[in-house]
Design a binder for these strands. Structure first.
Lengths: 332, 332
DNA sequence: CCCGAGAGTGGAAGCGCTCTCACTCCCCAC
DNA sequence: GTGGGGAGTGAGAGCGCTTCCACTCTCGGG
């Protein structure tokens, strides 16, 4: 592997000039720049990133942290879409993305050590839970970071983007109320995630405003099987429900299967609404009325928040909240 | 950030001893080792990876290269499973995985520069195509690598694992022949991938042996929509087919939808077999008879091949081929 | 009692790069 | 003519670490 020294020698300049020529080239004569470029070409020189980052203290790498089981990461279109957008957005700045999938426990310790070790310049965190305490940890490490989805603890210490889940859930529940449902249940997300608690809160707020009962609640886990199981419990304990707000389309798909098996027609016997609108909602039978989760926008904004920190601008945490958008189909 | 120097000073030893104590600890007295460990703990010392890899010439990082559009990467369970297994296997050796998704073109150039730049110790390549010429490129760079799936060019220069696609396709096609199909078509994979050409070759070989016509061929692209489109063409051009071998379950799922719409009963009017058995095959209607693609084994083996190179053992290319395994369901 | 082996240690070189600083030009305004 | 300033350059320090080498010290065997 050729070094900068050899490039400089071949180009007939000093190592300092060669370095300047390679990085941006300001304060370098056209002649010198050309000679260096030529030398780089003939030698096939590629800068050694370790040496470079040893002195610049930059790695040009960003971690995408997903404190979740790998099965879920790939089963849920949410992650795919997020990773896609994040990767694209960071690639424009020539930043590499390292995907860190780590559940709480040993793996998480390894991940934190990795983040603390200076392997990356910053982190994007997605699908975090209360007990991973990532916001606190990252704030303690002092690593620039942006969260997608509001952390349940330590939110005030970090940058994050969040959909207005409370408003979204309230509005979509109102669709059920307006169409005449009087006994409305919900399958929530995990209560250790803000998307879980907020959407449940929105559901409750809509029912409270309408003077309806809020006891038909089962916690789900954002998976299809979990939605199925939750729906079975719900039907058993509250057989009279005529409306159902499910906190994610994936869970709703599972719930629809259960309703179908139970012989309940949707939306006639029971109207169902979901949440997310990431492709699944239009493929269920019947297609789901749902709320759009603007993950593309959120991911892009999270990248922007991260870059703002990397560029040395802000260090005072900022947050960006996205308004919900209803998508009406035939399930309610 | 504390440095090794500070650790050494606090422990009352030299930097050299502190370094030895931290890495393995051979040739270090128990007393010194304990003092260093204590100092590391109180200082919260984490080694600087850039400095370390500058001298060791190791990065403890492995790239997983996927020359494919990001949509496909996440739509196809093949990648999820592969990435999962690779990540798990490498984590046991404390190796980080960097996911590089890059289609031919500019992105590919960036990726190659990244690989050449010494950011990673090795690479696992999956879903490569003829024109990306990755085997040639990686061999030229001299980077330790292992391919999952035989490269169509340069296969002799690299380590790879491969399922025996020809045998698998032949055997699954024989199921169609044995059940009495006489007009058997195929939807192939992309012909610029070995999985595409090999499975088509296996299909052809089975038909040749049985003395049947091999003209009902349409090329697909390993996506669900592509399978749908290919099946429509096939039905239009060869309305008399009574058997269909599809080169992937995902495409077969699309084909089944087309057959359903066309009013053809499966398997009575037309028997269908797929390939891969990664979860989709059991969820289609009817469930697919298919061939198991042992991607877990292949991925693990690829990691083993890579580690063999990293550990300085072999440099003479080796390959491991996996025998096919039929999975009988109701579609044929 | 001495010598050699081996364990443990520290000094110092050096990995490949960036960047500060001091220097030399050269040009232009006065 | 002279002085000031900007453009271009190179010497050299130093980023934090590993590792070679030389050294000391402790034993056990002859």
């Amino acid at each position: 592997m050729p070094t900068l020294d050899e490039v400089a020698r071949l180009a007939g300049v000093s190592r300092a000039t060669a370095s300047r020529a390679i990085n941006g080239g300001s304060r370098v004569s056209a002649k010198a720049a050309e000679a260096v470029a030529e030398a780089v070409r003939t030698l096939g020189y590629v800068p050694n990133p370790a040496a470079r980052s040893l002195v610049t203290r930059k790695t040009e790498t960003v971690a995408m942290v997903v404190p979740e089981s790998d099965e879920r990461v790939f089963a849920d279109p949410f992650f795919a879409r997020t990773l896609h957008v994040v990767t694209q957005a960071l690639a424009q700045r020539d930043l590499q993305v390292v995907l860190l999938i780590a559940q709480p426990g040993d793996e998480m310790q390894r991940t934190l050590r990795y983040l603390r070790g200076g392997h990356v310049d910053g982190a994007i965190v997605v699908s975090h839970h209360r007990n991973d305490a990532l916001a606190d940890h990252l704030a303690a490490i002092g690593l620039p970071a942006a969260f997608i989805g509001r952390p349940l603890t330590g939110a005030e210490k970090v940058f994050y983007t969040d959909p207005d889940n409370i408003a979204g859930a309230r509005e979509v529940t109102n669709i059920l109320i307006e169409r005449g449902c009087r006994r409305i249940g919900t399958i929530t997300g995990p209560v250790d995630m803000s998307a879980g608690t907020d959407r449940a809160a929105g559901w409750r707020s809509a029912l409270d405003a309408a003077g309806l009962a809020t006891d038909a609640v089962v916690e789900g886990d954002f998976t299809e099987d979990g939605g199925e199981a939750a729906c079975e419990i719900l039907l058993r304990d509250h057989p009279d429900i005529d409306g159902l707000m499910v906190a994610s389309d994936l869970m709703a798909a599972g719930a629809l299967r259960v309703l179908d098996r139970a012989g309940r027609r949707v939306p006639d016997d029971i109207a169902v609404v979901g949440y997310d609108d990431l492709g699944i909602a239009e493929r269920t039978t019947p297609p789901l009325t749902t709320v759009k989760n603007p993950i593309g926008d959120m991911a892009r904004e999270a990248v922007r928040l991260l870059l703002a920190q990397l560029d040395g601008g802000t260090t005072i945490p900022r947050r960006v909240v996205f308004a919900p958008e209803l998508v009406r189909r035939t399930s309610a």
